[in-house]
Design a protein around this nucleic acid. Structure first.
Lengths: 133, 133
DNA sequence: GCATGGAGCGGGTATATACCCGCGGTTCGA
DNA sequence: TCGAACCGCGGGTATATACCCGCTCCATGC
């Protein structure tokens, strides 16, 4: 039964499990790791259009649009218009900036935990392998 | 910006990308890697209840239930009842067995491609790391 | 000036995934 | 034997994710 060794299934399992680590750490802020990461990217690139952001985070544009809308409902992100009337320009709202600030140490702690558990060498291997896939 | 090094985001990206490799290979059969893998597990463990299958594949029971229902609609899986009237017992239908047979070489080819690209040593590392997370 | 093509988005649809709740069937103790 | 605890599921809800379609707006060629 080669099913236990399917690279895809193992990746998905690991992805779910690791996501839950970050999600738990960020739970007090009411955001999950996907939302927090998207918020960070918007902050880093703001003002940015949905399409450009989708390219940056390597997700489908419609996915980014829906996720951004959730952040907007939460009051963390503002969705305005660029010169081009078609463009939805994203910026971080004050409330979002607060979340970024409060979330940073929480994120750090999970990241550090994982690296401590793996050790420096394996952490490097992991990053390298994930990039190589 | 430590965002590019977030283990979680990198894992999710890798997971999406690698899933798409398998999905493309299996597309001619009309199933994706999640469905194919679930079908394999049902075949290996049949007859098995939803709850037990969920434990095996490390997914939420309701998720397995919904996914199984899709396979049932496709005619690949039969959902019957065990002695305990509450139990939904899963077995592979003939059509599902055919998919398993046809899919095996397609799955092998993606799996081999990935291992060839990484090399034996890194493939081992990958499996080890994913298990360690 | 206007038609045509292309770009940006929203929404529809489908699966993936999780959590929680309620219904109904089982079992076991009193 | 009969109610209470317990177990298995389905369904509701929410996000994550992708693909496709249609609408609107822009830019360019004529």
């Amino acid at each position: 039964m080669p099913n236990d060794t399917c690279h895809c299934i193992l990746l998905r399992k690991a992805s779910r499990k690791v996501s839950s680590y970050y999600d738990e750490a960020l739970a007090p802020l009411g955001v999950n790791i996907g939302q927090f990461s998207l918020l960070r990217n918007i902050n880093r690139l703001a003002p940015i259009s949905l399409t450009d952001l989708a390219v940056q985070v390597e997700l489908d544009r419609s996915t980014v649009g829906r996720n951004a809308k959730v952040l907007e409902r939460m009051g963390l992100v503002a969705i305005g218009h660029g010169e081009d009337q078609r463009e939805a320009m994203l910026t971080v709202a004050p409330k979002g900036a607060a979340i970024l600030k409060q979330g940073a140490p929480l994120w750090d702690s999970v990241q550090d935990d994982i690296e401590a558990r793996l050790g420096a060498e394996k952490t490097r291997q992991l990053q390298e392998l994930l990039a190589a896939l």
